[in-house]
Design a protein around this nucleic acid. Structure first.
Lengths: 118, 118
DNA sequence: CAGGATCCCATAGGATACTG
DNA sequence: CAGTATCCTATGGGATCCTG
Protein backbone atom coordinates (compact mmCIF):
# COMPACT_ATOMS: atom_id res chain seq x y z
CA UNK A 1 0.00 0.00 0.00
CA UNK A 2 1.50 3.33 -0.95
CA UNK A 3 1.27 6.71 0.68
CA UNK A 4 -1.73 8.02 -1.17
CA UNK A 5 -3.65 4.88 -0.33
CA UNK A 6 -2.78 5.27 3.31
CA UNK A 7 -3.99 8.83 3.28
CA UNK A 8 -7.12 7.67 1.54
CA UNK A 9 -7.81 5.00 4.12
CA UNK A 10 -7.31 7.46 6.94
CA UNK A 11 -9.86 9.76 5.42
CA UNK A 12 -12.38 7.01 4.88
CA UNK A 13 -12.19 6.02 8.53
CA UNK A 14 -12.51 9.67 9.43
CA UNK A 15 -15.65 9.85 7.37
CA UNK A 16 -17.52 7.16 9.23
CA UNK A 17 -18.08 9.04 12.49
CA UNK A 18 -19.00 12.16 10.54
CA UNK A 19 -21.67 10.20 8.69
CA UNK A 20 -22.88 8.73 11.97
CA UNK A 21 -23.31 12.19 13.44
CA UNK A 22 -25.06 13.53 10.35
CA UNK A 23 -27.42 10.56 10.29
CA UNK A 24 -28.40 11.09 13.91
CA UNK A 25 -29.37 14.70 13.21
CA UNK A 26 -30.88 14.27 9.81
CA UNK A 27 -34.39 14.23 8.52
CA UNK A 28 -37.00 16.92 8.66
CA UNK A 29 -38.18 16.43 12.23
CA UNK A 30 -35.35 15.45 14.60
CA UNK A 31 -34.19 18.97 15.43
CA UNK A 32 -37.72 20.33 15.96
CA UNK A 33 -38.44 17.40 18.26
CA UNK A 34 -35.29 18.09 20.25
CA UNK A 35 -36.33 21.71 20.54
CA UNK A 36 -39.76 20.71 21.81
CA UNK A 37 -38.22 18.44 24.43
CA UNK A 38 -35.73 21.10 25.50
CA UNK A 39 -38.47 22.66 27.57
CA UNK A 40 -38.88 19.45 29.53
CA UNK A 41 -40.48 16.05 29.54
CA UNK A 42 -43.49 15.88 27.23
CA UNK A 43 -46.25 13.52 26.22
CA UNK A 44 -46.67 12.23 22.68
CA UNK A 45 -49.64 14.46 22.06
CA UNK A 46 -47.86 17.52 23.41
CA UNK A 47 -44.88 17.03 21.12
CA UNK A 48 -47.26 16.44 18.26
CA UNK A 49 -48.92 19.78 18.92
CA UNK A 50 -45.65 21.67 19.34
CA UNK A 51 -43.91 20.32 16.28
CA UNK A 52 -46.17 21.91 13.72
CA UNK A 53 -47.04 19.81 10.72
CA UNK A 54 -45.66 16.48 11.89
CA UNK A 55 -47.90 13.45 11.51
CA UNK A 56 -48.34 10.81 14.20
CA UNK A 57 -46.61 8.31 12.01
CA UNK A 58 -43.47 10.41 11.59
CA UNK A 59 -43.40 11.45 15.24
CA UNK A 60 -43.63 7.82 16.29
CA UNK A 61 -40.93 6.82 13.83
CA UNK A 62 -38.54 9.61 14.76
CA UNK A 63 -38.98 9.14 18.50
CA UNK A 64 -38.20 5.45 18.16
CA UNK A 65 -35.14 6.30 16.09
CA UNK A 66 -33.98 8.84 18.64
CA UNK A 67 -34.57 6.38 21.44
CA UNK A 68 -32.39 3.80 19.69
CA UNK A 69 -29.70 6.44 19.36
CA UNK A 70 -29.96 7.23 23.04
CA UNK A 71 -31.15 10.80 22.56
CA UNK A 72 -34.53 10.44 24.24
CA UNK A 73 -35.92 8.22 26.95
CA UNK A 74 -39.46 6.88 26.79
CA UNK A 75 -41.42 6.55 29.99
CA UNK A 76 -44.69 4.65 30.23
CA UNK A 77 -47.08 5.39 33.07
CA UNK A 78 -49.37 2.57 34.07
CA UNK A 79 -52.58 4.56 33.99
CA UNK A 80 -55.73 4.28 31.96
CA UNK A 81 -55.61 5.54 29.34
CA UNK A 82 -51.88 4.94 29.19
CA UNK A 83 -49.63 7.98 29.49
CA UNK A 84 -46.28 8.06 27.73
CA UNK A 85 -43.67 10.77 28.05
CA UNK A 86 -40.40 11.47 26.32
CA UNK A 87 -37.43 13.23 27.81
CA UNK A 88 -33.99 14.18 26.52
CA UNK A 89 -31.14 12.06 27.85
CA UNK A 90 -27.79 13.30 29.18
CA UNK A 91 -26.26 11.89 26.01
CA UNK A 92 -28.39 14.22 23.91
CA UNK A 93 -26.90 17.13 25.83
CA UNK A 94 -23.50 16.32 24.35
CA UNK A 95 -24.94 17.31 20.99
CA UNK A 96 -24.93 20.93 22.11
CA UNK A 97 -21.51 21.71 20.70
CA UNK A 98 -22.25 20.12 17.35
CA UNK A 99 -25.49 22.02 16.99
CA UNK A 100 -23.78 25.27 17.95
CA UNK A 101 -21.11 24.61 15.38
CA UNK A 102 -23.67 23.85 12.68
CA UNK A 103 -25.66 26.95 13.56
CA UNK A 104 -22.65 29.23 13.45
CA UNK A 105 -21.50 27.93 10.12
CA UNK A 106 -25.03 28.04 8.75
CA UNK A 107 -25.29 31.69 9.64
CA UNK A 108 -21.90 32.49 8.16
CA UNK A 109 -22.81 30.58 5.02
CA UNK A 110 -26.12 32.36 4.61
CA UNK A 111 -24.45 35.74 4.99
CA UNK A 112 -21.84 34.90 2.37
CA UNK A 113 -24.39 33.55 -0.08
CA UNK A 114 -26.72 36.53 0.32
CA UNK A 115 -23.89 39.03 0.04
CA UNK A 116 -22.80 37.34 -3.17
CA UNK A 117 -19.42 36.71 -1.62
CA UNK A 118 -19.35 33.15 -2.89
CA UNK B 1 -48.08 36.42 21.56
CA UNK B 2 -47.22 34.81 24.85
CA UNK B 3 -43.94 33.68 26.30
CA UNK B 4 -43.95 30.12 25.06
CA UNK B 5 -44.67 31.29 21.55
CA UNK B 6 -41.78 33.71 21.71
CA UNK B 7 -39.45 30.96 22.85
CA UNK B 8 -40.82 28.80 20.10
CA UNK B 9 -40.19 31.43 17.46
CA UNK B 10 -36.65 31.94 18.65
CA UNK B 11 -35.97 28.26 18.30
CA UNK B 12 -37.47 28.07 14.86
CA UNK B 13 -35.21 30.85 13.63
CA UNK B 14 -32.31 29.07 15.29
CA UNK B 15 -33.19 25.95 13.38
CA UNK B 16 -32.94 27.47 9.95
CA UNK B 17 -29.14 27.94 9.84
CA UNK B 18 -28.70 24.47 11.32
CA UNK B 19 -30.78 22.99 8.52
CA UNK B 20 -28.80 25.02 6.00
CA UNK B 21 -25.55 23.61 7.31
CA UNK B 22 -26.87 20.05 7.37
CA UNK B 23 -28.18 20.37 3.82
CA UNK B 24 -24.82 21.56 2.53
CA UNK B 25 -23.09 18.51 3.99
CA UNK B 26 -25.75 15.95 3.33
CA UNK B 27 -26.12 13.18 0.84
CA UNK B 28 -23.94 10.19 0.30
CA UNK B 29 -21.17 11.81 -1.71
CA UNK B 30 -20.40 15.38 -0.60
CA UNK B 31 -17.92 14.48 2.13
CA UNK B 32 -16.02 11.93 0.02
CA UNK B 33 -15.77 14.51 -2.75
CA UNK B 34 -14.42 17.09 -0.33
CA UNK B 35 -11.87 14.54 0.84
CA UNK B 36 -10.79 13.84 -2.72
CA UNK B 37 -10.33 17.54 -3.39
CA UNK B 38 -8.42 18.06 -0.16
CA UNK B 39 -5.33 16.74 -1.90
CA UNK B 40 -5.60 19.48 -4.49
CA UNK B 41 -7.25 20.52 -7.71
CA UNK B 42 -8.57 17.53 -9.65
CA UNK B 43 -10.24 16.69 -12.94
CA UNK B 44 -13.70 15.19 -13.22
CA UNK B 45 -12.32 11.80 -14.12
CA UNK B 46 -9.81 11.86 -11.29
CA UNK B 47 -12.47 12.58 -8.70
CA UNK B 48 -14.63 9.89 -10.26
CA UNK B 49 -11.84 7.37 -9.80
CA UNK B 50 -11.04 8.43 -6.24
CA UNK B 51 -14.57 8.48 -4.95
CA UNK B 52 -15.24 4.78 -5.21
CA UNK B 53 -18.69 3.80 -6.40
CA UNK B 54 -19.95 7.20 -7.51
CA UNK B 55 -21.58 7.42 -10.91
CA UNK B 56 -20.90 10.20 -13.40
CA UNK B 57 -24.45 11.38 -12.94
CA UNK B 58 -24.14 11.78 -9.19
CA UNK B 59 -20.67 13.32 -9.38
CA UNK B 60 -21.90 15.86 -11.88
CA UNK B 61 -24.94 16.63 -9.76
CA UNK B 62 -23.05 16.95 -6.50
CA UNK B 63 -20.28 19.09 -7.97
CA UNK B 64 -22.87 21.48 -9.38
CA UNK B 65 -24.59 21.62 -6.01
CA UNK B 66 -21.32 22.27 -4.22
CA UNK B 67 -20.42 24.95 -6.74
CA UNK B 68 -23.73 26.71 -6.09
CA UNK B 69 -22.98 26.58 -2.38
CA UNK B 70 -19.55 28.05 -2.99
CA UNK B 71 -17.63 25.03 -1.78
CA UNK B 72 -15.86 24.21 -5.02
CA UNK B 73 -14.73 26.22 -8.00
CA UNK B 74 -14.95 24.85 -11.53
CA UNK B 75 -12.22 25.73 -13.99
CA UNK B 76 -12.50 25.05 -17.71
CA UNK B 77 -9.35 24.86 -19.82
CA UNK B 78 -9.74 25.72 -23.46
CA UNK B 79 -8.04 22.66 -24.83
CA UNK B 80 -9.19 19.81 -27.01
CA UNK B 81 -10.52 17.67 -25.60
CA UNK B 82 -11.72 20.11 -23.00
CA UNK B 83 -10.17 19.83 -19.54
CA UNK B 84 -12.17 20.72 -16.45
CA UNK B 85 -10.87 20.85 -12.91
CA UNK B 86 -12.47 21.37 -9.53
CA UNK B 87 -10.86 22.94 -6.51
CA UNK B 88 -11.99 23.67 -2.97
CA UNK B 89 -12.74 27.32 -2.24
CA UNK B 90 -11.60 29.30 0.80
CA UNK B 91 -15.22 29.21 1.93
CA UNK B 92 -15.10 25.43 2.05
CA UNK B 93 -12.19 25.71 4.47
CA UNK B 94 -14.49 27.33 7.01
CA UNK B 95 -16.28 24.00 7.22
CA UNK B 96 -13.29 22.57 9.05
CA UNK B 97 -14.62 23.29 12.50
CA UNK B 98 -18.05 21.87 11.76
CA UNK B 99 -16.58 18.67 10.39
CA UNK B 100 -14.27 18.33 13.38
CA UNK B 101 -17.21 18.81 15.67
CA UNK B 102 -19.28 16.21 13.84
CA UNK B 103 -16.40 13.76 13.84
CA UNK B 104 -15.73 14.12 17.54
CA UNK B 105 -19.35 13.65 18.47
CA UNK B 106 -19.69 10.76 16.04
CA UNK B 107 -16.79 8.99 17.72
CA UNK B 108 -18.16 9.66 21.18
CA UNK B 109 -21.56 8.44 20.09
CA UNK B 110 -20.22 5.25 18.61
CA UNK B 111 -18.27 4.49 21.76
CA UNK B 112 -21.33 4.99 23.92
CA UNK B 113 -23.55 2.89 21.69
CA UNK B 114 -21.04 0.05 21.45
CA UNK B 115 -20.36 0.08 25.18
CA UNK B 116 -24.08 -0.14 25.80
CA UNK B 117 -23.89 3.08 27.76
CA UNK B 118 -26.98 4.46 26.10
C1' DC C 1 -54.26 8.85 24.31
C1' DA C 2 -50.48 6.80 21.77
C1' DG C 3 -49.57 4.99 18.20
C1' DG C 4 -49.88 1.16 14.00
C1' DA C 5 -51.56 0.00 9.16
C1' DT C 6 -52.09 1.24 4.64
C1' DC C 7 -51.64 3.81 0.54
C1' DC C 8 -49.49 7.42 -2.13
C1' DC C 9 -46.10 10.73 -3.92
C1' DA C 10 -41.58 13.02 -4.36
C1' DT C 11 -36.82 12.81 -4.20
C1' DA C 12 -32.09 10.33 -3.72
C1' DG C 13 -29.49 7.52 -5.92
C1' DG C 14 -28.01 3.56 -9.23
C1' DA C 15 -27.33 1.43 -14.19
C1' DT C 16 -26.59 2.03 -18.73
C1' DA C 17 -26.10 4.32 -22.94
C1' DC C 18 -24.96 8.31 -25.53
C1' DT C 19 -22.60 12.99 -27.20
C1' DG C 20 -19.80 17.52 -28.10
C1' DC D 1 -12.82 13.67 -21.48
C1' DA D 2 -16.74 15.56 -19.16
C1' DG D 3 -20.57 15.16 -18.77
C1' DT D 4 -26.28 14.37 -20.21
C1' DA D 5 -30.36 11.46 -21.02
C1' DT D 6 -33.20 7.84 -19.75
C1' DC D 7 -35.00 4.46 -16.91
C1' DC D 8 -35.38 2.21 -12.53
C1' DT D 9 -35.50 1.21 -7.36
C1' DA D 10 -35.42 2.55 -2.59
C1' DT D 11 -36.40 5.62 0.94
C1' DG D 12 -38.48 9.80 3.19
C1' DG D 13 -42.38 11.68 4.16
C1' DG D 14 -47.57 12.85 3.84
C1' DA D 15 -52.74 11.53 4.29
C1' DT D 16 -56.09 8.87 6.17
C1' DC D 17 -58.07 5.52 8.92
C1' DC D 18 -57.97 2.22 12.66
C1' DT D 19 -57.20 0.23 17.61
C1' DG D 20 -55.73 -1.30 22.55
Amino acid sequence: METTDLKHQECISTLRPIRDALDVLNGKWKLPIIVALTFGEKRFGEISREVHGITDRMLSKELRDMEVNGLVKRKVYDTYPVKVTYILTPHSQTLGGVIESLRNWGELHRKKILSGEV
